[in-house]
């Protein structure tokens, strides 16, 4: 469902109030922020760890870190969601470090070469794809490309907010997004050919 500008503004105001209360030490308000963002944090971390247990642990870690740091939030000048995403992304990178695995982080320039996708994926192709194949296609993207797509579609961020969440310029996010979309459609088209 598409959120209208008015609904978005109301949602933002609602989040702002909860954040303000949480900064003032209101645990209940923080609990409601958890209710608002837990699904998105989990969706982001689940694709990056092996087990659901790890994903749940990491989700809890993200919110505990957010609670510890929330007093300093107001100085950062970015929306709460983008701030929380940064914590989630750093927590994932920390977990990779602990397990000696390194996520692939490529700059926009090093990412997939943009191809002319002549074989655009048909709806019917998509319908035939299993969840595993879909996840495999996502896994083949770079960490930054996956993050951009996750921010745009699951977190509901626009380009500016995505840029704030990733600590990049809007131009870099647009480039990442363009490459991610092209790469994903190319991969899905290949799946179709081989399938």
């Amino acid at each position: 469902m598409v959120l209208g500008a008015r609904e978005t503004a109301l949602a933002e105001r609602h989040i702002d109030r909860l954040v303000a209360k949480a900064i003032a030490g209101d645990a209940r308000a923080f609990g409601r922020l958890y209710d608002e963002f837990a699904d998105r944090v989990y969706a982001f971390v689940r694709g990056r760890v092996v087990s659901t247990q790890d994903a749940e642990d990491l989700t809890a870690t993200v919110f505990l870190k957010a609670w510890e740091a929330i007093n300093g939030y107001d100085d950062r000048g970015i929306p709460f969601g983008a701030w929380l995403f940064r914590i989630a992304r750093n927590a994932v990178i920390d977990s990779y470090r602990r397990t000696a695995r390194v996520p692939e982080i490529a700059s926009a320039e090093d990412a997939f070469e943009v191809m002319d996708v002549s074989a655009i994926v048909d709806e019917r192709v998509f319908a035939r794809l299993e969840v595993e194949e879909v996840c495999e296609a996502m896994d083949s993207l770079t960490e930054e490309q996956r993050s951009v797509l996750m921010l745009r579609f699951v977190w509901g961020f626009d380009v500016k907010e995505s840029a704030q969440g990733l600590g990049k310029s809007e131009g870099a996010v647009k480039a990442l997004q363009h490459r991610a979309v092209r790469s994903l459609t190319r991969l899905l088209a290949e799946e179709n050919e081989h399938g």
């Binding site: 659901t52 709806e123 998509f126 296609a137 579609f153 979309v181 899905l188």
Partner: peptide, 24 residues
Amino acid sequence: EWDVVAQVVLRSAAPLSIDRKRAI
């Protein structure tokens, strides 16, 4: 492309069950 990618990303995002959400 945008629609297909949106569906792919949403399908790849594993949902968090209500019980597990409450537990966390």
